[in-house]
Design a protein around this nucleic acid. Structure first.
Length: 108
DNA sequence: ATGTTGACGCATG
DNA sequence: CCATGCGCCAACA
């Protein structure tokens, strides 16, 4: 099984309303976070069609969006998709990872 | 086989 | 806050 397949399988498990990070995915699979980014980038490159993989739920360790500088992906798309799932962004365009990170318990 | 490419993360200035 | 630098490594060409 290819590494990127493992990554896709894991990303599929991120629950709606929560997010993960490149680092967290990498840690769980014992691979470098860079490879996680590479694998997700591959989706946009080689699979123009929708694929059922919730790629938008993977963000960077700062709680921010990393796709905005890419030509492949429309500006602001990832944020829009996440907001649609209930993720809120502060004025610095960051999410509260202590709240939304996959595996953390929700505060009341 | 060899060089290049990143949706990273962390440390440092 | 911004800018580099570097370790990292699968897949691609």
């Amino acid at each position: 099984m290819k590494t990127y397949e493992k990554i896709y399988n894991l990303v599929k498990k991120i629950p709606k309303g929560q997010v993960s990070t490149y680092g967290q995915i990498g840690q769980l699979l014992n691979i470098n976070p860079r490879v996680v980014g590479w694998a997700l980038n591959r989706l946009a490159k080689y699979q123009s069609k929708s694929n059922g993989i919730p790629w938008q739920r993977v963000i960077n360790s700062k709680g921010g969006i990393s796709t905005n500088r890419l030509m492949n992906i429309p500006l602001g798309l990832q944020k829009k998709l996440l907001e649609r799932e209930g993720i809120r962004f502060n004025k610095d365009e960051k999410t509260d990872l202590s709240k939304y990170l996959w595996g953390k318990k929700q505060k009341i």
